[in-house]
Amino acid sequence: MSAEAGTTGARQSRLSRALLYALLIVFAVYYLLPLFVMLVNSVKPLSEIRGGNMLALPHEFTTAPWKSAWNEAQIGVSATGLAPYFINSILMVVPAVAISLIVGALNGYVLTKWRFPGANVVFSLLLLSCFIPFQIVLIPMARILGIIGLAGSISGLVLVHVVYGIGFTTLFFRNYYEAFPTELIRAAQIDGAGFWRIFTRILLPSSGPIVVVTIIWQFTNIWNDFLFGASFSGFDSMPMTVALNNLVSSSTGVKEYNVHFAGAIIAALPTLVVYIVSGRYFVRGLMAGAVKG
């Protein structure tokens, strides 16, 4: 495709080429603008935001908003900053990602290499579960978490994220293992390997890319989740997104925009870092999750 466009492009006038780049840069500015706004204004004193130009660089550089956002700002009733909620998010994300990853890998393995009558039905049910609007499960989930004593706890959130994550993790691994040559499984069977040894010795060592894709996908989704966090967490177990929203939308006192921006960046940082470090896999996950059924 691009080779073709290139040869036509070579014949295009310089002007249209310049216009092309100009357009691309305008769009780049559009996408970078909010990040720029957040960054610049998170290091300005509040007075400079209120009286000044949001797009201007800071006259007076200060890290106070970051400190405040991290461990001083008022969240709900206590002035703890976002730090405890950042920890909450980590405590929630790590086990939820790990469990859903393992379960998804095993499911994908069974659904492609050890199919049994009815496996397709199981897969279809798992697949459809990826798409439900979570509003449909909010009420019963709240009840069940209350009944089993996990309401308002981080463990409860882990459970919720695992349950509604395995559809996607299974889908990822199933599609990946589908393309994994069945002859290799047969060769291993003839060599005398059983169910677990084929998985651990043959499939898992070749699963690097899909493991990374799945971790990134689950990490991003669970870290960024708001609905479950807002619905099922207590004051002590709030994840980062919920705490940030409380910080930003609290109606009492002065609106500390610089602290809000600093907080927003802190909340975005883990997923942004993941994206910068492994963007290729991130995109692959998005595609796999979206395009392939």
Partner: peptide, 20 residues
């Protein structure tokens, strides 16, 4: 009998070499 117990060996079309 399971494949491993039949005292056979097999060469596959794709060779099926374990990539790892």
């Amino acid at each position: 009998l399971a494949p491993a117990k039949r005292d056979i060996a097999m060469v596959f079309q794709s060779y099926a070499l374990y990539p790892n």
